[in-house]
């Protein structure tokens, strides 16, 4: 049982940190520009595919740097020539634009790399087991993922709280108009933030790609979870996004480990429920089976009862 707890925690934190790499960019973009970027997970996917392509020619490590940069530039271009054009039609149009973009990216990826998963390998230097606990091994690559995402998290923290750029961004988060009147080039800041956000997502893609299967459906399966994280954490709140990322990561990992169903709980209370009793499937479903629902349930509940999210300070 202890090993289950240890390894589930490790994997949960790992998954949560990866989520945070995406959620941080998404929440920054939303708070500054008011755009919920539907295509954010698509940039994550692009990162994974670019990383794969680069790793085939010059290896994994250059890809770790080049792919996020490339995707960041693409993101900045999308903001400059796409979003800015749509901006005058309002937020709904912006949302729809990114929705369409996600659609196009998925199609392009399928066209270029095919519909089946690509063979994105873990770099040879990390293809060993980091440690063995209760004779279960923890792969070094997962350790690397964990350290990378924590490193980036700390880097972001320093950037945002200790540098001038960070100050401007923080100011633009809450009072974009005033930042503009202070003489900062707000459109440029927007473009940079959008580009950097997309780059971060791509970085998450490059490091997650080899471990979590690089395939055209990876964006569509991650996208909705990402929204859950951002909304539950509180739109515009980085610390909220961090807490929510870890929360969702841990929930999803631990839920798989639990085989308890409502029927089991009721059995302890002396009530016998079977599949044949009214609403049978509901009673018999184990926590593991219900796991995919939990984040969305959380989302709906938070939006109704706590519209600011866990740590946000503005209404959705």
């Amino acid at each position: 049982m202890l090993e289950l707890v240890v390894f589930s925690s490790l994997n949960g934190v790992l998954y949560g940190m990866l989520l945070f790499l995406l959620a941080s960019g998404l929440t920054l973009i939303f708070s500054m520009m008011g755009v919920l970027n539907f295509a954010h997970a698509s940039f994550y996917m692009l990162g994974a595919y670019f990383g794969f392509q680069i790793s085939r020619y010059i290896g994994f490590w250059p890809g770790l740097v080049v792919a996020p940069l490339l995707v960041g530039v693409i993101g900045a271009l999308v903001e400059r020539y796409g979003l800015r054009t749509v901006h005058k039609h309002g937020h709904v149009a912006e949302l729809l634009f990114t929705f369409g973009l996600a659609f196009i990216v998925e199609e392009l990826v399928q066209m270029v790399w095919g519909k089946i998963p690509v063979d994105y390998r873990i770099p040879g230097a990390l293809n060993f087991s980091a440690f063995t606990l209760f004779d279960t091994t923890f792969p070094a690559y997962r350790m690397f993922m964990l350290l990378m995402s924590i490193g980036i998290f700390l880097g972001l923290l320093v950037l945002l709280t200790r540098t001038r750029v960070g100050l401007i961004i923080q100011a633009a988060l809450t009072h974009p108009n005033i930042v503009g009147t202070l003489g900062h080039n707000v459109p440029l800041v927007f473009m940079m933030v959008f580009g950097v956000g997309c780059g971060l997502a791509a970085l998450a893609g490059v490091i997650a790609g080899p471990a979590l299967v690089t395939q055209p459906a990876m964006a569509a399966s991650l996208g909705p979870i990402l929204f859950v994280v951002v909304v539950v954490g509180g739109l515009g709140s980085l610390s909220g996004a961090f807490v929510a990322s870890l929360l969702i990561g841990l929930i999803q990992t631990f839920a798989v480990a639990l085989n308890i169903s409502l029927a089991d709980v009721m059995a302890h209370l002396g009530v016998t429920l079977t599949r044949e009793s009214f609403g049978g499937d509901l009673w018999m479903a184990t926590v593991a089976q219900v796991a995919p629902i939990i984040p969305y349930l959380l989302l709906v509940l938070v939006l109704i009862f706590r519209p600011h999210g866990l740590m946000g300070n503005r209404d959705t």
């Binding site: 937020h91 989302l299 939006l303 959705t316």
Partner: peptide
Amino acid sequence: TAFAMISLGVGEL
């Protein structure tokens, strides 16, 4: 946007 997000959540749910 909140309505859009709730509808997404309900859909996924």
